[in-house]
Computed example of a mutant assay.
Amino acid sequence: MYALTLTAELNGVTNLRPKDTAETPFWYTFTVQCTSCRETHANPIAVSRFEVNELSGSRGEANFVWKCKNCKRESSCSIKTSPKPYEQKEPPASQTIVEFDCRGLEFTSFSPEGEWLAEGLESGTKFEGIDSLQEGEWFDYDEKANDEFMPVNPRPMLQGLVNKEIEVRLKWGDTCYKGVLVSIDSYMNVQLTNAQEFIDQKFVSDLGQILIRCNNVLWIKGVNQGENADVKMKD
């Protein structure tokens, strides 16, 4: 038996889960390996709890049936129950989403592609069409709660600001930096050149080239782009 577990930092939402019904089945995407010869399937496979395939030799049915090209052994996988919602907790904790009864194969990696659902923590607002978990990040606006929660995935905006002047506000001390964005890395750490430091909107000093760790950042915007360009970042 294998369990798909999830650890997520949820801000303002709870009950994160795959949209998985008979009308709109969720396809759980994995890479798989044969437990007999250790051969890994060349391409990712997808398993749905609503698809049924026959096992050879009249041995019953399974949601996924695979015959290893290397050792010719037949393997199978079935999903026994519907997915369990991931509940908001502080601090975030690993929770089981769904379990798989695997025979002769094992999963080596999971890709969260597909549509996910969530609910507003206080408002109960229903959020559908969450399809950006492959990036590991998602945000939306809860009109009932009048609150924007978990603004994540700022990378596309930041990439568009490379070689342009930006303003970076820190989480504390009324401190911000202005300078030209040189680069960002995969962790969203920000490199500036011609940087200047401001505290409480007052100029403090010229710093030249600096690196700002992502977990220190409250928001980032292009200079002269206004408040609507703000992108908050969470550590």
Rank of each mutant, 00 (worst) to 15 (best):
C102Q: 12
S82C: 09
D142K: 04
E143V: 11
V13N: 02
V204Q: 12
I130E: 01
Q88C: 13
Q134L: 13
F26A: 02
W27S: 09
E137D: 13
G124W: 09
S82R: 09
E113K: 03
K69C: 03
M188I: 13
S109V: 09
L218Y: 02
F26P: 03
Q201R: 14
E90W: 12
A195S: 10
I97H: 01
L117M: 04
Y141R: 05
P85Q: 06
Y177D: 02
R103D: 09
M233H: 10
A229T: 00
R155Q: 03
K144P: 06
T81M: 03
D101K: 09
D142V: 03
I210Q: 04
G114L: 11
G124R: 08
N53P: 00
F50A: 08
Q88G: 01
L207F: 14
Q196F: 13
Y187E: 10
D147N: 10
S109T: 14
K221C: 15
K164C: 05
F149V: 01
E167D: 04
K234G: 11
E197L: 15
G129N: 15
L158A: 06
M157E: 06
N63S: 07
C34N: 12
A46L: 00
L117E: 04
A118R: 01
L218C: 04
E51K: 13
P156M: 07
T125V: 05
G222A: 14
L6H: 06
E51I: 10
Q134D: 06
I220Q: 00
E106D: 06
Y86A: 13
S111C: 09
D235W: 14
S186E: 15
E51Q: 14
W219F: 15
V180E: 07
K84R: 10
L10N: 02
G12L: 08
N70H: 11
L218W: 02
S183A: 14
Y187L: 11
V180H: 00
S132W: 02
D20G: 02
V162H: 01
D185K: 06
N63I: 05
G129W: 11
K144G: 01
M188L: 15
I79C: 03
N228I: 07
N63Y: 01
D200M: 05
E148P: 02
Q209W: 00
F139A: 12
W138Q: 01
N228L: 14
F107G: 10
C68Y: 10
A22I: 12
S109E: 08
W116L: 07
N11Y: 11
C71Y: 09
V47D: 10
A22F: 02
V223E: 05
Y177N: 02
Q209H: 05
V65I: 08
T24C: 03
N216I: 05
Q209P: 10
T35Y: 00
K89P: 00
C34K: 11
R59G: 01
F107R: 10
N11W: 02
Y28L: 05
S48V: 03
P18C: 08
W219R: 01
V168C: 04
R73N: 09
I97P: 01
G173P: 04
A145L: 05
I45V: 15
H41G: 07
G173E: 06
L218P: 00
R103E: 07
I220R: 00
V65C: 07
A62Q: 11
N163Q: 15
V217I: 15
T35W: 00
K89V: 10
Q209E: 15
A46E: 11
D235T: 07
K234C: 08
Y2S: 07
N163C: 10
E143M: 11
K144S: 12
M150N: 13
N215T: 14
T29A: 05
T14C: 04
K72S: 12
V32Y: 08
